[in-house]
Amino acid sequence: MSWPAGYGRIVLDETDSTMAEAARRAGTLAGPEWVMARRQTAGRGRRGRAWANPEGNFAATLVLQPREAPGVVALRSFVAALALFDAMVAVTGRADPFALKWPNDVLLNGGKVAGILLETHAGGALAIGIGVNLVAAPGAAEVEAGAVRPVSLMAETGAAVGPEDFLDQLAQAYAVREASFVTYGFAPIREAWLSRAARLGETVTARTGTSETVGRFETVDPSGNLVLMTAKGRVGIAAADVFF
């Protein structure tokens, strides 16, 4: 598997979290850089939640220096999700068990196999953190009540792939999707994402810290918002956790 031109690569034996490592290095990087760690001692997911990362699972952060407005930069969560989908297909040879869950999870046989976390740093650097359960998944007791059950790639598909080999696949897939995004904008990314979306057309629940919205998942709009048809009409949601 060839490494994408223009992208750097740092592989560490251990760090606290690849997101923290990326933040420390962001100001010194001249171009896109992948930071991967074989072990994380303090991995984290969305909303400050802990992210379990036993050895053999995948933890990496891509650091970019985007030039677009913040709302456009944030759409790279969809770019990353598509790249993850592509990499999963590449290592398993199958597309049918995988689906994309708004805003930034990858599902395998209905369970969560991967998550994405975006953060911006001083100077405009964007860090895209990606965690994948390659060989092991947390127990049900370790996730929020009602959340999608965690699964691992190996247990669900039998595919055995190491973190560095997965990084090769993911980096190449991301480079292709990023080039499309920069060249053609969000429209083709949005269309591709929707074609792989979990529970499209079905009733879902979107929860924030203060509210809950139930409705039929109609689409994702051109700004990346979740659009639900509720009893009160169409509602666009910019940020929430989605429950099935």
Rank of each mutant, 00 (worst) to 15 (best):
R177N: 08
E55Q: 06
N53R: 04
A127P: 07
L100A: 12
E142F: 00
A160E: 03
D241K: 08
Y7T: 04
E144T: 02
V242G: 11
A171T: 07
A192V: 06
P188M: 04
R38S: 02
S17L: 13
T120E: 12
E212P: 02
E144Q: 05
E212A: 09
D96R: 00
A173I: 08
V148M: 15
G123A: 11
A23N: 03
V79D: 08
A122P: 10
L12R: 14
G131L: 14
G209L: 01
V73E: 06
S17N: 13
V135Y: 00
G139H: 01
V89Q: 04
M19E: 13
A239T: 00
A87K: 03
L82P: 06
M88Y: 03
N133T: 08
V35Y: 07
M154I: 03
A60F: 03
F186D: 00
I10V: 14
M229C: 15
V220S: 13
V204Y: 07
G48M: 13
G201C: 10
T61V: 03
A83L: 09
E68S: 13
A37W: 04
L62Y: 15
R76M: 11
A37E: 01
T183N: 03
G131N: 09
A90M: 11
A87G: 01
A171C: 06
I189P: 03
F217G: 04
G56D: 01
F78H: 09
S2M: 11
G71Q: 05
R149T: 06
D13R: 13
A60R: 06
V11S: 12
V106L: 15
A87E: 03
V89A: 05
R46E: 05
R44F: 11
L100F: 08
L170M: 09
A240S: 05
A81R: 15
G115A: 05
L108D: 10
R25A: 15
T205S: 14
E178S: 09
P32V: 04
E218R: 11
G158N: 01
A145F: 11
T61C: 06
A60G: 00
Q169E: 07
A52G: 12
D168T: 01
D241E: 10
V204E: 02
A171E: 07
F78Y: 07
L75W: 12
W3P: 01
G233K: 06
M154W: 03
V242H: 09
E119A: 07
F166A: 01
V11F: 15
S223T: 04
L170H: 12
V132R: 14
F186K: 00
L62V: 07
G124T: 02
T15W: 15
A171I: 12
G158C: 06
R47M: 08
L167K: 00
P66M: 10
P138E: 02
L100D: 07
V242P: 11
L194C: 15
V182H: 12
E14M: 09
L226Y: 08
G48D: 10
D105R: 06
T15C: 13
Y7N: 01
V135A: 00
R67S: 10
V113A: 06
E14K: 05
Q65G: 08
N104K: 12
E144K: 03
G124K: 02
A155T: 07
N133S: 03
A136S: 00
D13N: 08
L167P: 07
L107M: 08
W34K: 06
E55Y: 02
E178T: 02
L226W: 10
V161C: 02
A187P: 01
V148W: 10
S2W: 08
A83S: 10
A99C: 10
